[in-house]
């Protein structure tokens, strides 16, 4: 592999929540630093702006905001594991191991797809119906 992100390798397990938190920020910053390069590699200028991409990445981080325990239920270092997975992903992206549609699908369009079944009346419907429109499983 010609290119490797340096300086953000996950060392041994984090000792405390603070340490893990620090690593997350480190990683987020390195992700932000790669954004211009990513825009260039995957030719994203006409579909998304840098700031939008940054906020999309940030929202992926926030999805896991509720995880406060560096040691998960079965003694797993959950935050470390997530950071590690994120780094793998970032490495793959920067190394051009992905293709344009991967990036667009995951970071430009997002989880919910292009067609968003949004309806202004949605507040009035029950959680059951809301879930029903999304999936058969709860």
């Amino acid at each position: 592999m010609a290119f490797r992100l340096t300086g953000v390798r996950v060392a041994a397990n984090s000792g405390s929540l603070e340490e893990a938190r620090g690593r997350v920020f480190e990683f987020f910053k390195s992700a932000c630093r790669s954004i211009p390069q990513i825009m260039e590699i995957y030719n994203l200028h006409d579909v998304i702006s840098e700031s939008q991409l940054r906020s999309n990445i940030a929202s992926q981080f926030r999805r896991n905001a509720h995880i406060t325990n560096p040691k998960g239920g079965r003694g797993l270092q959950v935050i470390d594991m997530l950071v590690f997975k994120g780094m793998e992903e970032l490495g793959n992206i920067v190394e051009h191991a992905k293709q344009r549609h991967h990036i667009i699908g995951q970071y430009v369009v997002g989880q919910h797809g292009l067609v968003q079944d949004l309806n202004p009346k949605d507040d009035a419907i029950s959680p059951f119906l809301n879930n029903f429109y999304k999936t058969n499983y709860s």
Partner: peptide, 13 residues
């Protein structure tokens, strides 16, 4: 597809 009873429950709402 959805489970049968769920469809009717959703339709009822």
């Amino acid at each position: 597809a959805r489970d049968d009873w769920k469809i009717i429950r959703a339709l009822s709402e």
